[in-house]
Nucleic acid binder design. Structure first.
Lengths: 340, 340
DNA sequence: ATTTAAATCTAAACTTATTTAGAATTTGTT
DNA sequence: AACAAATTCTAAATAAGTTTAGATTTAAAT
């Protein structure tokens, strides 16, 4: 296709030097290998003139480095992840690395297939992942030993790993505390299954601890699990049941999917939370929350920082090919957005 | 790193056959090359047992195919693009191709750099792109001749190209007509610069034609350009000016960024569109529009279909390495979402 | 038992770069 | 001038596959 690509050899022939020399100069190792300044200049000039760009596959095959990092997220259409993706990419670009983003669709098999394709066969130099997996078992396999992996958003408690996450516990604690201070005593928390994911267990813990701190007994019936595959229906069932009882004074959704589902159900039911004196809160902020009714009290995660830190941690791991012993655990603070 | 990867040669040695044979069998060409069934079974069994996965770089170097397709979008954090991305990826996965998504941040230089890196040196087999470029000049270069490129969302009128876009003209026409039928005679259209992008020029055309059809004279002052780099301020300036004059009976934002900016300004100003009798409409739907105040009349684009069609068109171009002569132009219908 | 044909397999070339080990040239020293 | 040392460069090996051209082996035909 198109015109023939310029090869190292083409430049070498033009200048009557070896392709070894051309390779050295182009990789900035001219001085290190004692190539004379004059020759270096000639090579660079000719390479520019002939529009040389190295064949990435040949280079990667020989060096074992692709300068590619993959980001696996559960769902790229979720603004939380797509925002992180944007910042990871931006940060990596400044360091000469490219990012490939893939979406696993909350599907463990697909996640493992992609890891196998990209990481195990070293198509990428490093992996940043919001894992859907239930355990760290898969990541223990020999092939992934010493492969640079950074977990984001969620980490797996059963393995030692490098991760960058928001302080889910703190965010949930503060949000719950705020609701309590606003007078709520019956906060219905809507969690999402599978709820084993670290970010969720910590949000639950923060919720419970905040209640305890303020001498409010936690009631089992106030922590309900919504099935990921049936969010809308589950939320409808729960809300119609609980709101009619009329004891609930706040609804706290543990992720943004459930929040939008609630808004949908409020709409359907013609439920006016403000009039009924029910506060509405959610973990994960969405910019449009500024305009929805009822107003949403939310926990905003530092998506930009998560992206930047994850990118740099990945690069750090790639550079220090050494020991696996020490891992970095980065926990970033969240902030409460209290509307109205 | 980790244990040594299994190579073709390792399998060949174990079975006392040539690596040529192993390669043929693993690539499903055993029958074509007349390898006996028994041998094929042995090879596949051993390959499974030794957990063989081919080195993608060696394969790509030799074959010139990477089974990778890149999707370049202006902004991955924009739900319009991230939704398309999700569907492109899903569709490609079923065909054995992987997708790398990159965000150009509406930056022409970055876009061209990425194309050069990925496409010109054939790191990818095909490219799907929502271009930020102002002209097709860049895409005419010899190196990109015959390279499979599919434009989405926006196409470049000055070059012949394969593209998949929504029917921006129709959507805008219908939306404007709906506003007119609801009694609006002074519809303020807020466009975004750079407005040369095909999707925008067609939306403008649809707006103007619908007015003409209903015998409403188009007024220059009712088509305002908002600068991409200063959306919030520009919108504020325009809205405060025009709303105080009190002649406007509808606001129509030509993309979702401007829509959210408007919502912000309404908020700041304490402007109640419903009370003031001003309708609010936008091109590009966002699911949360269901809950915002004022209610939004919007044009919804078929993101799923755009993704699927783009993926298949790219694959088609990759397969038919032949002539460039005939291009495919796919224009998909939009739908109006009229709330309240 | 040859020859011919068909079935099955393999050695070597090839893809494009990087790296190693060493060659050729120049400079410096006595 | 002769030898050592420093400078500058290159041939060949290497990465891990795919493909070409041709070699064996087995079966069929006379």
């Amino acid at each position: 296709m198109g015109i023939k690509k310029t090869l190292l050899e083409d430049i070498a022939k033009e200048l009557n030097v070896s392709k070894t020399l051309v390779s050295m100069v182009i990789n900035g190792k001219g001085d290190a290998y004692g190539i004379s300044k004059k020759t270096q200049e000639k090579v660079l000039a000719k390479a520019g003139e002939m529009e040389y760009t190295p064949n990435v596959f040949a280079r990667a095959l020989r060096t074992g480095k692709s300068h590619l990092i993959a980001l696996l997220v559960a769902d790229i259409s979720n603004p939380f992840y797509s925002n992180i993706a944007k910042h990871v990419e931006k940060e990596l670009a400044t360091k000469g690395y490219n990012l490939m983003i893939c979406s696993t669709d909350e599907n463990v098999e697909r996640e493992e297939k992609l890891i196998s394709l990209f990481a195990e066969q070293h198509m990428i130099d490093g992996l940043i992942i919001a894992t859907t997996n239930t355990s760290g078992e898969y990541f223990k396999k020999e092939r992934l030993r010493n492969f640079p992996i950074v977990f984001i958003d969620r980490y797996l408690p059963d393995i030692e790993s490098n991760y960058v996450v928001a302080n889910n516990y703190q965010g949930s604690y503060e949000l719950t505390e705020l609701l309590v201070k606003k007078g709520c005593k019956n906060i219905l928390a809507l969690n999402i299954t599978p709820s084993h994911i670290s970010s969720l267990t910590e949000r639950v813990k923060g919720y419970k601890d905040a209640l305890k701190k303020h001498d409010i007994a936690f009631k089992d019936e106030n922590l309900v699990e919504i099935s990921f595959d049936n969010i809308q229906n589950d939320v409808r069932t729960q809300l119609t049941k609980r709101l009619k009882q009329g004891k609930i004074d706040a609804i706290y959704t543990l992720n943004n999917h459930i929040a939008t589902a609630c808004l949908n159900v409020f709409n359907e039911m013609g439920f006016d939370a403000k009039k009924e004196g029910v506060l509405f809160a959610s973990f994960d902020d969405i910019s449009l929350f500024d305009f929805v009714k009822p107003s949403v009290i939310s926990v905003s995660q530092p998506v930009e920082n998560i992206g930047i830190e994850a990118a740099n941690l990945a690069l750090h791991l790639i550079d220090s090919k050494t020991n696996t012993t020490d891992v970095k655990k980065i926990v970033l603070p969240t902030s409460i957005i209290s509307r109205n």
